[in-house]
Design a protein around this nucleic acid. Structure first.
Lengths: 334, 334
DNA sequence: ATGAAAGCGCTAACAT
DNA sequence: ATGTTAGCGCTTTCAT
């Protein structure tokens, strides 16, 4: 029952009556091993169930064939990026390992930085950072950021066109005749959230509509905060006829609050989200939202990273994917 | 732009004019370093942004404080287990790293075995295996299996009461007056799937209903295979009035096929799934299903593993969680 | 209080 | 064809 000690290359060497160097050569298919020896060593390897230690190997080589993905939380956005990355990695000969922040809030900011320095050059050949808080550092290995908190820095980045997405959302609403359009905003520390808010303001202005600051409420990409925001917005005497939320999670929270208040979506209130997470298609009514190709962002990030690792010279290291409006049933003409 | 070489303990030592041993002592808060030296070293560490390499450290110590989670695929089940595990790990002082199978089919069976031997004793102190194909091996580190393919072996296991869950599903259907109840089965290589099928047969028998072999179709826990199964079942002249599917993914596929065929759920067809993945609550109509506490399975697996790593002596290493019927709107009395 | 040196498991020069 | 050896970055005796 007690864990057996690991079988090491020395055990194999001893058992096969050769040196560890020979075993290593067999392992790595190097030349200079006779057919007979090679076969014998392989047999012993199989018999003993030996596998080279990834750790020891990493320490020696500086190539591991694994790419890391660092993610703060397994929220819907992160999970989708993850799936896309897992998908892309299949065709690359790399393996994927995922690190999640331990979760202690005090360790939150900059956690990817610590992880990275501990891993890079050793355990991973490069890493994808999902919504990282830091983007300014030069690590020991290539890094690609997906939807970073701060705007494009020197770091290779995959994001989507948040500004245009917000335009699309608001234009859809104004096109439907809405004029009192509120917004539940995202996390002010995130570039994506700021762009979505800017898009809202620009599109309102373009439609000749005044932006009433009172109609902007912080949702912080968080269900609870968004519920409060929605409750505030919807329990006013002169409430907005439409709400644009900075992400789908906020929209879903808003929908729930509306239901509690007896406000019918879309009859009494139009709602547009952002992201198009899988859940958005399954709300009641299904949510009209701005789709970001989240999985594709994960996929592209891995592809970019692999090329970076391979030292390919790239025309550009900033990829911005298009956003588009997905009209479902949470909006209606006024 | 080119990645800087890693800062190593030697760089720090050189910069601080001490030996690497001293730096190591400072790092690990060992006694025998003067206050002054310690402070100086710490300053240099901060200035250089040094972090000890996880790899080198693992190779030396044989304790890493990280637990691994091995998962074949980020499917809904696996993702939920992952969330539960990530949750539980927060309170343990361990860190979680997730490995996903590369995905090449030829490498599929037994992939967790290879990973495990490469990691154990070095990179992770123990591992959680999600729906592993092998359960019979003694590795270098503690292992906990979640919903293993084969039945309980010697390996510590977390699963749920699949047999009782299937009973619940079929009893619900027979209680509603259904008699022609079909089943779309799971993957025959999985213990869980076999138990669900056995439960179906037992409950049918208990209700005095004959099991027509023709009413059993393979769904393999796979959307595509399940669609075919559903199409076959539903396009017969004398079709079943109810279908019990081995998991929710199959149920959702069946629901889609029913819609295509103009068969109304639940009016023309009652449907019961298994798992209660998040998607199940959001189908149209919402799916009646047997809930497994998937996240809790992940949580319990981590808890069990941590105790195993800590050498605690346990009363039992097999945890079976209860399943329960969640009645939503995909079933109706005949 | 500090440092020299051995060694964790492995690979790659460099012998033989 | 095979073996010897150095060294990857770190921790830990064991000197000094």
């Amino acid at each position: 029952m007690n864990p057996l000690p690991r079988v090491t290359i020395r055990d194999v060497a001893a058992e096969a009556n050769v040196s560890v160097a020979t075993v290593s050569k067999v392992l790595n298919r190097r030349y200079g091993v006779s057919e007979a020896t090679s076969e014998r060593v392989n047999r012993v390897i199989r018999e003993m169930g030996y596998e080279a230690s990834l750790v020891a190997r990493s320490l020696r080589n500086h190539k591991t064939n694994v790419i890391g993905l660092l993610i703060a939380d397994f929220d819907p956005f992160g999970s989708e990026v993850l799936k896309g990355a897992a998908d892309a990695v299949r065709h690359t000969g790399f393996e994927l390992v995922v690190y999640s922040a331990g979760g202690r809030p005090d360790e939150h900011v900059g956690w990817e930085r610590r992880y990275l320095s501990r891993l890079s050059g050793t355990l991973v050949d490069g890493a994808v950072l999902v919504t990282p808080t830091v983007t300014d550092v030069n690590y020991g290995a290539p890094i690609v950021a997906v939807d970073p908190h701060t705007g494009p820095s020197g770091m290779p980045t995959v994001d989507s066109d948040n500004l245009r997405g917000a335009h699309l959302a608001v234009e859809h609403l104004t096109g439907l005749g809405h004029r009192r359009i509120a917004m539940i905003t995202g996390r002010p520390d995130l570039q994506s959230a700021r762009l979505r808010e800017r898009g809202y303001r620009e599109a309102m202005a373009a439609a000749g509509l005044p932006v009433e600051e009172d109609l902007l409420r912080l949702g912080a990409y968080d269900p609870e905060v968004s519920r409060d925001a929605a409750r505030d917005l919807l329990s006013r005497p002169h409430r907005p006829t439409a709400i644009f939320t900075a992400n789908d999670t906020s929209a879903i929270a808003t929908m729930e609050v509306a239901a509690e208040l007896g406000i019918c979506v879309p009859d009494d209130l139009s709602l547009v989200g952002f992201d198009d997470i899988p859940e958005a298609a399954r709300t009641q009514p299904p949510l009209t939202t701005v789709a970001q190709p989240i999985r594709e962002m994960g996929r592209r990030a891995v592809e970019l990273l692999v090329r970076l690792i391979g030292q390919e010279s790239l025309e550009t290291t900033h990829i911005t994917l298009v956003t588009r409006l997905v009209e479902r049933h949470s909006t209606r003409a006024i």
